[in-house]
C-alpha cells in the first residue's frame, strides 16, 4: 500500500516498557472503539508507528504527482486535461492533509520532507514505474487508486482520530479518481485498435505492481500484531489484496482486457479469484531503490524543493518585515 514499507523493525522504546496502568487504559479505550486524540496519552511506539505510516502515506501522495503529471501537458482532450490536472491536484491536497495529521503527533512537515529528500523515508513503490502512454493514466486511476481505496477505507476507522478523519475525506476523492480512471480505460477499450492495444499494454505493466502495493504476503510480514491490536491496521496484507483482486478482475474482463497472469482463476468453492505468485524479488528491488524510476522521482522532487528555496525564503523574509512594521506602528502609537 502507500505505506507498504512499514514492515521494518521498529527499534525505539517497545510498548512493553511503558507504564502498565496507562497502557491498559489506553488499550481499553481502543478496544471500546474510542478515538485517540493528539493530546491524549499514547505509547511511544504507537506514536512512532503512526508518524511513520502517515508520513509514508503523505510522501506517496506527493511523489505520486509525478508519474501522472507526466501526461498533463499531452492529455488528448481538454476534458481529459482538466480531469487529470484536478486529479493530480487532489493528490497534492491529500499530501497536505496527511502532513497536517502527522504534525498533530509532534513532527513538523519540514522534518518529514527532509527525511524524504534524505532518502530516509519511503513512499509507495508503485510510483517508481514510468507512465509510458495515455492509457497509463487510466490504469493508474483504476488500479492504483483502486488499491489505495481498499487500504484506506478501513483506515477511516483507524484508532487515531486525525488520521481517521483525513482518510474519510481522502477516500471520497480516491473513489472519484478510481471511477475516472476506469472510465478512461473503458473509452480506450471501446476505441480504435491502437487505443485498445494501449489499454492492454497499460494493464500488462501495472497489474503486478498494483498487487505489490499491498506489501509482502502475510507469511513474510514482520510485526503487524501491534498495529492490529492498536486498530491502526484492521486487515492483513493478503486479505486486502484478495479484496482488491476480487473487485478488479471482473472489471477488467468487462473491459475485454486480459490480465497478465496465466494462473488467474476463480475458485468455484469460495468465489475468490486466485492469482499467480507475485515476483517478490522485483518488489524488494524497487523498494530498495532500484526500480525503473526511483532515481528520477527523487531527483525531480529534490530539484523542485531546491529550486523553490529562494521563494520560501522570500515569503518568510516578507512575513518578518510585515511583522516588524506592524510592531513599529504599535510602538509609535503607544
Amino acid at each position: 500500500m502507500y505505506t507498504q514499507a512499514l514492515n521494518v523493525k521498529d527499534t525505539g522504546k517497545p510498548a512493553s516498557a511503558e507504564d502498565p496502568g496507562k497502557l491498559a487504559r489506553f488499550q481499553a479505550r481502543i478496544d471500546a472503539e474510542e478515538k485517540i486524540e493528539p493530546n491524549d496519552w499514547m505509547p511511544e511506539a504507537y506514536r512512532r508507528t503512526l508518524i511513520r505510516q502517515i508520513s509514508q502515506h503523505a510522501h506517496s501522495e506527493i511523489i505520486g504527482m509525478q508519474p501522472e503529471g507526466n501526461w498533463i501537458t499531452r492529455a488528448p482532450s481538454l476534458r481529459r486535461k482538466a480531469g487529470l490536472l484536478a486529479k493530480v491536484q487532489d493528490e497534492g491536497g491529500h499530501g497536505l492533509y496527511l502532513y497536517a495529521a502527522a504534525e498533530t503527533l509532534g513532527c513538523s512537515r519540514e522534518e518529514l520532507v527532509d527525511q524524504l529528500l534524505a532518502g530516509k523515508a519511503k513512499y509507495s513503490s508503485i510510483f517508481n514505474y514510468p507512465t509510458l502512454s495515455w492509457a497509463d493514466i487510466g490504469a493508474i486511476g483504476w488500479l492504483v487508486d483502486g488499491a489505495a481505496i481498499m487500504n484506506q477505507i478501513p483506515l477511516c476507522r483507524c484508532s487515531y482520530g486525525p488520521y481517521a478523519r483525513a482518510m474519510i475525506r481522502v477516500c471520497k476523492e480516491e473513489s472519484f479518481h478510481q471511477r475516472q480512471g476506469y472510465e478512461i480505460m473503458m473509452t480506450l477499450s471501446r476505441g480504435s485498435a491502437a487505443q485498445k492495444a494501449m489499454a492492454q499494454d497499460a494493464l500488462n505493466r501495472w497489474w503486478w505492481p498494483s498487487l505489490m502495493m499491498f506489501g509482502p504476503s502475510d507469511k513474510d510480514s514482520v510485526h503487524s500484531t501491534d498495529t492490529m491490536k492498536w486498530k491502526i491496521k484492521r486487515f492483513s496484507n493478503d486479505d486486502l489484496r484478495q479484496k482488491f483482486v476480487d473487485a478488479t478482475v471482473p472489471q477488467g474482463h468487462y473491459l475485454g482486457l486480459e490480465f497478465p497472469d496465466p494462473a488467474l482463476k476463480r475458485d468455484e468453492k469460495t468465489g475468490h479469484w486466485q492469482h499467480g505468485e507475485i515476483d517478490w524479488s522485483e518488489f524488494k528491488r524497487v523498494l530498495a531503490g532500484d526500480g525503473p524510476c526511483n532515481r528520477q522521482r527523487m531527483k525531480v522532487r529534490t530539484k523542485a524543493h531546491e529550486d523553490g528555496t529562494w521563494v520560501r525564503e522570500a515569503a518568510l523574509a516578507h512575513a518578518r518585515k510585515r511583522a516588524e512594521r506592524a510592531a513599529a506602528v504599535r510602538i509609535a502609537a503607544e
Binding site: M65, Q66, L85, L96, R109, A304, G308, R312
Partner: peptide
C-alpha cells in the same frame, strides 16, 4: 499546468 508537481511549496502545487 506545466508547473504541476514542481511548485516551490505544496500549497502552490
Amino acid at each position: 499546468s506545466e508547473w504541476t508537481g514542481y511548485a516551490p511549496t505544496l500549497e502552490e502545487d
